[in-house]
Structures are given as structure tokens and as C-alpha cells.
Design a protein around this nucleic acid. Structure first.
Lengths: 345, 345
DNA sequence: ATGAAAGCGCTAACAC
DNA sequence: GTGTTAGCGCTTTCAT
């Protein structure tokens, strides 16, 4: 690795002082420099293949132009990478670099990593959760410009952006209801997380709004993975008075329903409509017929997080704002092939 | 954000010079400092909640203690996050920080990002590919300590670590053959990538080693996703003289086989054994019966990449080594439930 | 319009 | 044992 060239090299080559070089390179607003000097410097920089040393800039400016992202398990979960992408795009647009670290879920490590990031003088911190829930971020976040991604703090003291679970569930239900379904089952995850509460609220309110009474025997709670749901669905579908549609907490659960329907000789969507949640492509476009589901706004959330963070960083005061915003982003319904009108009541 | 404390603060508080502070904090080997001064400094540091400014250290030491990771699409693909985890662990163990950036697959951006990383004076670069193939890394890598992850450069000029595709395929075939199968179909991806070549080689050699002639009518080539494979498998299974086992290029293809077998009334593994490749958990443990498959050593590859990189970085000369190693890591067979002895010949 | 010099926080000769 | 000092590469008053 060659010694990288510095402004001093440029200064020598173009016969000016480093001050002047700095002025032309940073386009200092107040500072005027003669057009031809400027040109000389520019070409010297070009010729030397100069790029500024961000470490030095950071030290001088007290601003590293990097944002740290801490995540519990988000990096290891397939459907959240879109968040990172959204964040990455927003960061790149502002000439910021995203530094991702993952604690692998070990809470003990999170503080350590927040520290590592702060030691590198990142300008802000994002704490990304692998799913929508109340998070307990490392306390370091409180004294730093920070935003919570796909999570909320208990006391609301940190800015956050989360998906509109209620709206997403309502959209799914509206789709089913508008196709004429009235007996719609809700297969919900039993964990005590914001996603299950929000989607359940959406399920109920959509029904109520449509004038359909909520039948509690139609809401099922379990750990919503493929296998559990398969077993549950076998039971549900064995009932002659079974629901005509099943709204599933996630796509994995929906896949379980697919398997069960198949085994029982029921055809989707002719005999049973199903809609999932998450739009986990591997499943949603992998199964036959393709799954109608509601997508999580991962990309948008990631983008919002960084965009917001940069506004507070750029505003100068490097601290959590007094009254941090809490944003909720829409979950769009993705229409595919697993919904049709009920063939019977 | 409070002003972070510096060694100068510590020096003042403990009544020594900053040099001494630096010495005790870095435990400079040659330097001896009186035990009680040492203690005073330590406690002052503690008290001030001091953590070193890595920017300043980096500037001074010409060593940032960070490794940059560039990836084509790896961050957006579910099964490669293990690579990152392995890399992260290795980095953390050596007090290095991993900086991940993703070009989203746009080649034009890769150089820009390599540059951004180099501007931050990362100590080394990893270029991670989303699947095993010949990669064309940004030329910046050539003048930097670098390693290719899950990819190889055409001319072998950069160190690399990849999975042992041949061995993995051989392990899968050995499993099938040892159960008594002799008519084993090979559903291979048609893309011209190292994975397809290596696995095909493994398929053939395992057969040959077992004294089973290779039947070319049993190797099928297509874009190996769930849907294509479903269609193919329907045709294969319709043949009365069909193979008794199907070895699939990946788990998605295997899932297609599952669907087809189901539709045709064939039970896995009683009527048909199947083994996949990739161990994509969502599928391999999601389907019924669980899928026997071969795993890619993502974690190990990530770990190796960083470990190797750090040895070259620490060796002092900050350049690609003259004769870079090319390592191949084993792909373990994961035995689950989709293989049994053939019920007929 | 340009340059000298200070200083961001740190480490490492080199004194004493 | 401990302190003085130079300097990593850069930006920015403040002179000229």
C-alpha cells in the first residue's frame, strides 16, 4: 500500500500553502481563491489521486460522518435486510457511512458495541430490532442522537419508527371482507409483542367496522411457525363449519395452512382463502398459488431512521431531542393469488 | 452529549503528565511506571468514564482497527448472514470493528464504497459474494490487504475462502448410496457458477466411486427455484421408471420436489428420498418431513476471512501477500428425515 | 488572495 | 519513573 497522498503533497506540487489547498478542496464559502490557483490545486489533487483522510477530518471537525447501527439479531434475519438497505441508501445520499454491528442477541454485548461505536465517534446511533416490539436499548443511546428502528422504548424517550400493524391487518381483512368472507379465522402469535397486539386490534376493528360480530372461537393463539400452524390448521379444517378464510400472523404460518389444506384435499383459494403477513418472498412467491400477504415497510423504516437522525445531527446539538418523534409507516397489502370469494358459507 | 474526557483530563485529575497516562493506559511494554501512579491514573480514568478516541489513535497509529466488508448482495440474502456473524466474531475477538457496506449489486458503486472505506483508513477489506462464484472485485482491493469471501478471483491474486462443493455433493450422494439407492437423479442449476460445476463433479464422482454408471438421463438442468423444479418433478415422477432418490441443487428446488411428490401421491421418504443443498432453515426445517441437506460453511468462511486478514494486517506489510492462500472449507451433511432405503428398484 | 500557526486526541522518541 | 515535544492530516481563525 503506497503512502496515500495528503494535502501537503498537493500543496507542494501546486506551489501553494496547505491552507489554500484546503480552501479549494472544501470550497470554503467565505473564502475566495483565484480561479487559476484553484485549477492548479484541483489538477494536482487529481493527479495525486488524492482522497481526504476521514480520520483526520473527523478529529478536527469532531464529526466522523458515520452512523452506527446496532441490532439485536436483525442481521441474521432474512426479512430485515431491507431495513439496512433503506438506511444505507439514505446514508450514502448524505455522504455518510453506515457501520453495522450485531450483538447476536446478547444483551451484554450491546453496551460494549455501543461503546465501540462511540469510541469511533460515530455521529449518531440506530438501534434496530428484529421485530416490532418494546426494546430496552443500551443506556448509551440516551446521551446520543439516536433512533429506534422497528421498536419503541417503554418511555418514548428515543425517536422511533415502526410499522402500522393495525393498518396492515385492517388492509388484509378488508381484502377478505370485500371478497365476501364473513367467517374469517385469525391465527395469531401468542407472544406478547406489539405485532400480535396491533394485528389483533386490526382484525377486530375491521370486522366491527364491517358490521360482522367478532367470533372468539375463530381466533387462535400459538407460536406461529409452520409446523405448529400445520397442526392447528388440520384441526380447524376438519370442522365442517370451518372458516372460509384464514388470516395468518405471518407467512410461515400461512405455509403451514397451505400444507394442511393440501393434505385435507382443500384447494386454495377455491375452498379456502388465506392471507399472510410479512411478505417473506421465499414463501410468499414460492408457494402455489402465490400468497396474498401484507408487507412490512422495512426499506422505508430504514430510510426514515437515517434521514431523521441526520436532521438532528445536522441541527448541531448532538443530543436526543427533547420531544422525539414516533413514526408509524404503512404496511401495504400485496395482492397475489390466495384470495377469492367463498364458495359456500 | 457531554464533552468526552481525554487523556489530558485524566492527567490533570491524577496530577501526572499525559505521557504517563498514555503509558499506563496502553500498558506500553518497555515503559515502567510506579504502581501507585498507575493506580491513580487508572482510577481517574474510571472516574471520568474515559474511553479512547479511536479517530485520534487511528490517525496517530495509522491503524484504525476496523475492517471493511463490501458485498454485492450478500446483506440482502438470508443465508449469508452467517458469514457476517462469523466475521463479526473473529473481528470482535481481536478488538476490531467490522464496517459493512452493500452495493446492492451495482458494480458502479463498489469502487465508490471501497473508496469510502479506504478514506476511513480501514485496515483491510473483505469482499463478500452472495454465492460461490468467480468475482470481479473493485481494483482497489489489489493494493490493500484483502480477502474474497465465498468467491474467487479469476487470476487468484487475492486470498479467498470458499465452500467445498464437491465434497458436499459427495457427502449427499454417499448418504443416498449407503441407503441402497442406485437410480439417483441430480437436479442441477443451469447457471454457469462454481456451485453447479462443483456439485455436479461431486455427483458423478460419488457414483463412479460406488461403481454405479452415470446415467445422463438422470441429470436435469434448469433454473433451480421452487416453481421450475415443481414442474420438472411432476414430469420426473410421472415416469414409472423414475429415480428412487433426487439430489437437488438447493433447498428451494427440494421444496418443489416435495410439492410435486405430494400432488402425485408419493410419500417422502418412503417412495422417494430427497436431499437438498444450502440448509436454508426456513425450508429445511419447515417442510414435512424435515429435509436432509448439506450445509454451507458460511460462519466458518466468515471467521476464516477475518482471521486471515488480521494475520496479514498484523504482519506489518500492508499489502496483498505475494502468494495468497485459497482455502476450501467442508460442507457438512445435515441428516434429517427425507432419506430412507428405496422401497423398490 | 494567500499563508502561518494553532489544535483536534493521541503515541512514542527522547530527554531528565 | 516521569515529562517535553513532535507530529499523524486536517480545518480555521487571524494576519498579511
Amino acid at each position: 500500500m503506497h503512502r496515500r497522498s495528503t494535502i501537503r503533497d498537493i500543496a507542494e506540487l501546486s506551489g501553494v500553502s496547505i491552507t489554500t489547498v484546503s480552501h479549494v478542496l472544501t470550497d470554503s464559502p467565505g473564502k475566495r481563491v483565484a480561479p487559476d490557483t484553484r485549477a492548479r490545486v484541483r489538477s494536482a489533487a487529481e493527479q495525486l489521486n488524492y482522497t481526504p483522510n476521514r480520520l483526520a477530518q473527523g478529529l478536527r471537525l469532531q464529526r466522523s460522518k458515520t452512523i452506527g447501527v446496532i441490532s439485536d439479531l436483525v442481521l441474521t434475519t432474512p426479512y430485515a435486510t431491507e431495513m439496512i438497505l433503506g438506511a444505507q441508501d439514505a446514508a450514502a445520499a448524505a455522504d455518510y457511512l453506515l457501520v453495522l454491528v450485531s450483538s447476536g442477541g446478547e444483551v451484554a454485548l450491546e453496551s460494549r458495541e455501543a461503546r465501540a461505536l462511540m469510541d469511533r465517534r460515530v455521529d449518531g446511533l440506530v438501534y434496530a430490532s428484529m421485530y416490532h416490539r418494546i426494546v430496552e436499548p443500551p443506556k448509551e443511546l440516551l446521551v446520543y442522537p439516536a433512533v429506534l428502528l422497528d421498536g419503541r422504548s417503554a418511555d418514548g424517550s428515543i425517536a422511533s419508527v415502526v410499522p402500522d400493524e393495525v393498518g396492515g391487518a385492517r388492509a388484509a381483512m378488508a381484502e377478505l371482507i370485500s371478497h365476501g368472507h364473513r367467517r374469517i379465522g385469525w391465527i395469531c402469535d401468542s407472544h406478547d409483542v406489539l405485532a400480535s397486539h396491533g394485528r389483533t386490534t386490526g382484525y377486530r376493528s375491521a370486522l366491527t367496522d364491517a358490521g360482522i360480530p367478532v367470533d372468539e372461537s375463530l381466533v387462535y393463539r400459538l407460536e406461529a411457525d409452520t409446523q405448529n400452524t400445520y397442526a392447528l390448521a388440520r384441526r380447524i379444517l376438519a370442522d365442517p363449519h370451518r372458516p372460509t378464510a384464514l388470516f395468518c400472523f405471518n407467512d410461515r404460518a400461512a405455509m403451514g395452512v397451505y400444507f394442511a389444506a393440501h393434505d385435507v384435499g382443500l384447494s386454495i383459494p377455491r375452498d379456502l382463502s388465506v392471507v399472510g403477513f410479512d411478505d417473506q418472498r421465499l414463501i410468499s412467491t414460492g408457494v402455489r398459488p402465490e400468497l396474498t400477504t401484507v408487507a412490512l415497510p422495512h426499506y422505508d423504516m430504514g430510510h426514515w431512521a437515517i434521514t431523521h437522525l441526520l436532521t438532528v445531527v445536522d441541527s448541531g446539538d448532538r443530543r436526543a431531542a427533547a420531544d422525539p418523534p414516533h413514526v408509524t409507516l404503512p404496511c401495504p397489502l400485496i395482492r397475489r393469488e390466495s384470495v377469492s370469494s367463498p364458495s359456500r358459507d
